[in-house]
């Protein structure tokens, strides 16, 4: 498609001279308002459903472990923890803990994942060695995030007000009484390394 002569006068005059542009910004001659609004309504429904479907698919464990960086490292470590199997059969998947549930924060996290795409493309953690070297940094990101939001993702399931301290060990009950119920600390401040291995200690314990 060759450029029209008006191209030299700039992008705007080229745009306004374009027949498709003119058609889009002029009242319809052939279609009624009823038809056009219905069409927009249907398109909006499809978009809304499609958008949320994609968002939900990107919020599944299956999606997370489709990258070997997640599948071979953190996903393996989750297996065997209390958040993988337990007496009640309720389990946590990646996004339950690592993707904020409120919409705005979820979208912000999805956009932050562009950094993970960058990491995938340039192989930032594509070997076990690279992952172990970066683990303290990565773990600290999550600890900082969870400390700041007072372990909001933990509290989606674990309600301090529903804890029966008498069913806990005396040590746990007294720690929860003095630290958690006073609001001084939240879950992550004490319960680090419960779903994945801690950064330090792994080498000491002779894993890998």
């Amino acid at each position: 498609m060759s450029l029209p002569p008006s191209r030299r006068r700039g992008l705007w005059s080229w745009l306004t001279g374009n027949v498709w542009f003119q058609t889009m910004f002029r009242p319809s001659v052939h279609f009624s308002l009823a038809f056009l609004t219905l069409g927009g309504f249907v398109a909006g429904l499809l978009f809304w459903g499609g958008f949320n479907t994609v968002l939900e698919v990107a919020n599944t464990e299956q999606f997370c472990v489709s990258c070997h960086e997640m599948r071979d490292n953190v996903y393996q470590e989750l297996q065997g923890t209390i958040h993988w199997t337990n007496p009640s059969g309720v389990r946590a998947t990646c996004p339950d803990c690592h993707v904020p549930h409120p919409w705005t924060l979820k979208i912000a996290r999805k956009m932050a994942a562009s950094k993970e795409i960058w990491g995938k493309v340039f192989g930032i953690v594509d070997t076990r060695e690279k992952f172990l070297a970066l683990r303290p940094t990565l773990a600290q990101h999550e600890w900082d995030r969870m400390s700041a939001n007072k372990s909001a993702e933990c509290r989606n399931c674990h309600k301090p007000e529903s804890m029966n301290l008498r069913l806990q060990t005396p040590q746990a009950a007294s720690a929860h009484q003095s630290q958690l119920l006073t609001g001084e600390k939240s879950c992550i401040d004490c319960h680090k390394g419960i779903a994945h291995k801690l950064p330090v200690g792994e080498e000491i314990q002779g894993f890998d």
Binding site: V19, W20, T23, M24, V29, H30, G39, A43
Partner: peptide, 24 residues
């Protein structure tokens, strides 16, 4: 380049492009 006469086919194509591509 000059303002073209309204054309039913072109209006339909513009509508579909707007509703299903541009606005999404």
């Amino acid at each position: 380049v000059a303002a073209a006469a309204p054309n039913k086919w072109r209006e339909m194509r513009a509508f579909v492009a707007l509703a299903f591509l541009v606005w999404p």
